[in-house]
Design a protein around this nucleic acid. Structure first.
Lengths: 196, 196
DNA sequence: TCGTCAAACGGGACAAGGTTCCGTTTGCTC
DNA sequence: GAGCAAACGGAACCTTGTCCCGTTTGACGA
């Protein structure tokens, strides 16, 4: 694992040491601030916690979406990889789908405000949107197709719409004890089941 | 119908004529601006359109939630009254519930950004939240109970949670042709049906 | 080791929007 | 018509996102 690069580049020009240090500091600070103040915490707060100026944050992460992606990339990748694994080991495709959606919900509800931001139509979050689309929708589609092929569910709903719906249901779960997103998601998945 | 008061007060001190005029102008302006710019349009824009200063808007509607409520009060009341009516005239309680939820979805998706704001945890929208809770949740509860009593649906979901879920599903429908909230709401309602 | 210079930096400046304050205007009442 | 509280308007202030520019610093060759 390369410190300054995820490994995709051939001739990555190698960043300066202070730049790498700051990037790491920013990621750590952002992760901490996101936990306490949500993913929409003021840029200044994150910069201050990292001990850098505000411009530095923009230099490393042009939009807030880029920062959010960087902070949660590992978890999202893990989620993407969990899909095929569940499908391979689960008793049925439908069970795998249910379990995977559970993991997705867990991820969302533990990240303050992430679900909200994920579905905002603010143009600044296009990158975030695209990333989720690229990484997770195909996985979900695979699970859906397997379950549909097994005859367990109806097949007229596409993965994008399902994920978006699930994501929406997770909005505003924070500090609202009367609202249990998990239960509603369960209902949604139940509604998906093919009547037989 | 009284011009300056919905009729609840006994000794309402009767507002000044200019105050009543401005309130009306603000409501009209807000309604217009909400249509074009959504319910989160800048206060300044609404004030300008109404031809008043920004302080005036705060005087009449202390929070944005109050303004939103005032603008949509008629429609919300109509929605509340439609519940019992549908229950009385519909073929079955479940059909009435479905139809009523449809009306609710129609209301939400035609108001730019209302669904989003309705479920934001911003303290400034507590009033809005409370109003929906007061007016619509009991209606929904009545429909749910009737359907449950008729044995058509499971009875382990309360009205608040259902409405909140439906509202959440309606977030971000604007200018997203790939996402059809109605269909997902349908799924949710389908998931509610008692397996028999 | 030292000089050079582009990379990287920090924080101040600007813009947008929400909210409040305060001096002025305007209806109502007598 | 005078008095006075209600209501007004818009400037001022605060927060937050974003950009700019003068300064610092790490990397590398001499």
């Amino acid at each position: 694992m390369n410190d300054s690069d995820a490994g995709a580049g051939h001739a990555a020009p190698r960043k300066r040491a202070d730049a790498r240090r700051n990037e790491r500091a920013l990621l750590d600070a952002a992760a901490a601030v996101f936990v306490t103040s949500g993913v929409e915490a003021p840029i200044r707060d994150i910069a201050a916690k990292a001990g850098v100026g505000t411009a530095t944050i923009y230099r490393h992460f042009p939009t807030r979406a880029d920062l959010i992606i960087a902070v949660y990339r590992h978890q999202i990748e893990a989620l993407a990889e969990a899909g095929p694994a569940l499908l391979a080991t689960g008793p049925t495709p439908h069970a795998a789908l249910g379990r995977w959606i559970d993991l997705f919900v867990d991820f969302l509800v533990t990240k303050h405000g992430l679900a909200a931001v994920l579905h905002s139509d603010d143009a600044g979050f296009d990158t975030l949107h695209a990333y989720f689309l690229d990484r997770l929708v195909p996985v979900c589609a695979q699970l859906l197709e397997a379950a549909a092929a097994a005859g367990e569910i109806r097949s007229d709903l596409d993965a994008y719409e399902l994920m978006r719906g699930v994501g929406n249901l997770c909005i505003g779960v924070e500090n609202n004890p009367r609202y249990d997103a998990r239960r509603l998601v369960e209902l949604l998945i139940a509604g998906l089941r093919r009547p037989h």
